[in-house]
């Protein structure tokens, strides 16, 4: 036994480990590093055609100071903010309920809550586009009608359009986040709850002092991917408004990249938006992670 372990440690496998990981290295170099560098370079260029490229310094970044960019930045930030505000507390509560031994039919409900995640943004978006339609007989307006409220033209106003976007996102992601939080709950040692019971703690005390701290890593993870997903949002808005976005309703940063790059063919400016978006996502996540003490935890 000792002998085999010795040979195991001594043996170097030469090129073999690199062959195993080569798919990632190749894919990273070709489809990630090269495009990233090329985006950075293009963001300092004016590109009029294949042979007509000139460096223009920071001009593309200066051009970001325009109302359309700020509309896109504002929309994307508000969207990210609301999705986090809804898609953290709500799934935590549902996960706690579904994790409770006394809850009836836990597995059935867990499956039901997950089902929307199976739909594509397009299919879900098609439904909500018509559910939030302007007809008074359509789903949401019909409900309002029963409550005596006049029909609303949901997708033609900024605030109600944003509401429709957040509803779509909540419907699709609720079940996924529930599963994340359920797996987090299962990692909290049961003894903690037992000793709290002995100390006579009530349900709310236990939730605040045991459950929430125990879920901290999962909360951090969910917020991180929500920042990433929220700032990269595009398809949801695309199903509601296409690429036209009248009056900037639902215009997102990625959509702005798409419009600038593909519709107006201004690759340089579109790249500057992309790099700015990347920096924003990184900065927001660093702020968020330090707020939740993630880095502090890494140190000790």
């Amino acid at each position: 036994m000792r002998n085999t372990q010795l040979t195991y440690k001594k043996r170097t496998h030469g090129i073999i480990p690199y062959l195993f990981v080569s798919p990632f290295i190749i894919s990273f170099l070709v489809f990630f590093l090269y495009p990233t560098i090329s985006t950075i370079v293009m963001s300092f260029q004016r590109i009029l055609g294949p042979g007509d490229v000139s460096f223009i310094g920071l001009r593309n970044y200066q051009n970001l100071l325009n109302p359309l960019f700020f509309t896109a930045l504002k929309n994307t930030t508000i969207y990210t903010f609301w999705t986090i505000l809804v898609l953290v507390p709500l799934p935590i509560i549902l996960a706690v309920i579904l994790n409770d031994k006394t809850t009836i039919g836990k597995n059935v409900f867990r499956s039901i809550f997950f089902m929307p995640a199976l739909t594509s943004v397009i299919v879900a978006g098609i439904f909500f586009r018509y559910a939030f339609g302007e007809q008074e007989t359509t789903f949401i307006n019909a409900i309002l009608g029963n409550l005596g409220v006049k029909p609303i033209v949901w997708l033609q106003q900024k605030s109600t359009g944003m509401f429709a976007l957040v509803v779509l996102c909540t419907w699709r992601w609720l079940g996924v986040n529930i599963i994340y939080f359920l797996s987090g709950l299962q990692n909290i040692p049961a003894e903690l709850y037992e000793s709290a019971d002995i100390d006579g703690a009530n349900a709310i005390n236990k939730f605040i002092n045991i459950t929430l701290p125990g879920l901290r890593p999962v909360i951090i993870y969910v917020i991180t991917i929500s920042v990433y997903g929220g700032y990269a949002m595009f398809a949801e808005s695309y199903t509601y408004w296409g690429t036209s976005n009248p009056g900037g309703i639902g215009l997102t940063l990625v959509q702005y990249i798409y419009q600038t790059g593909f519709n107006q063919n201004d690759m340089g400016f579109a790249s500057a938006i992309g790099i700015t978006l990347l920096l924003i996502v990184m900065i927001v996540n660093v702020i968020q992670l330090s707020f939740f003490g993630y880095f502090r935890k890494e140190e000790d």
């Binding site: 480990p17 290295i25 990273f28 495009p35 985006t39 293009m42 992309g274 978006l277």
Partner: peptide, 29 residues
């Protein structure tokens, strides 16, 4: 093997970058 940790960290880093920002250069590629 040499570079293993670097490669693993790269995997984690790539997971954190929205691919949507790369659509233009990827299109040209």
């Amino acid at each position: 093997f040499k570079g293993r940790n670097l490669i693993f960290l790269t995997v984690l880093a790539v997971m954190m970058v929205p691919i949507e920002i790369l659509i233009l250069p990827l299109y040209r590629l």
